Simulated scan of single mutants.
Amino acid sequence: MASDVIRDGLGVELIDGADLVVAAVFRCDADHTVSFSQFVESVPLHAIEMLIARARDRLDPFEDGKPLSYGERDA
């Protein structure tokens, strides 16, 4: 878990054995969006699936109480 005051949100990071962030899911409370970022070329699918599942659990709801699915309304 990582908070980001500048981007107004909270994220869940996937960290490798060398303590480098290889992927992250970020919840932006300002505009009710959730985004996935990958910082290395290759990440195993099962690791991405685990990251997304953990993010759904840990990042829900937005700071104002709206569920993460609220941000998907315009998708």
Rank of each mutant, 00 (worst) to 15 (best):
M1D: 05
S3L: 09
S3G: 02
D4F: 03
D4Y: 06
V5Y: 04
I6E: 07
I6K: 05
G9N: 07
E13Q: 14
E13R: 14
L14E: 05
D16K: 04
G17R: 09
G17T: 08
A18R: 11
L20M: 12
A24G: 12
V25R: 01
F26N: 10
F26T: 08
R27T: 01
A30W: 07
D31V: 12
H32V: 04
H32T: 03
T33Q: 13
T33D: 09
V34G: 01
V34I: 15
S35Y: 08
F36N: 03
F36Q: 09
F36P: 07
S37H: 07
V40L: 01
V40D: 03
E41T: 12
H46E: 13
A47T: 01
A47V: 00
I48W: 02
M50W: 08
L51A: 12
L51V: 04
I52Y: 09
I52F: 11
A53M: 06
A55T: 08
D57V: 14
L59C: 06
D60F: 00
D60W: 09
P61V: 08
P61W: 01
F62H: 04
E63G: 04
E63I: 06
G65D: 03
K66D: 11
K66Q: 14
K66F: 03
L68H: 14
S69Y: 03
S69Q: 10
S69G: 14
Y70M: 10
R73P: 00
D74N: 11
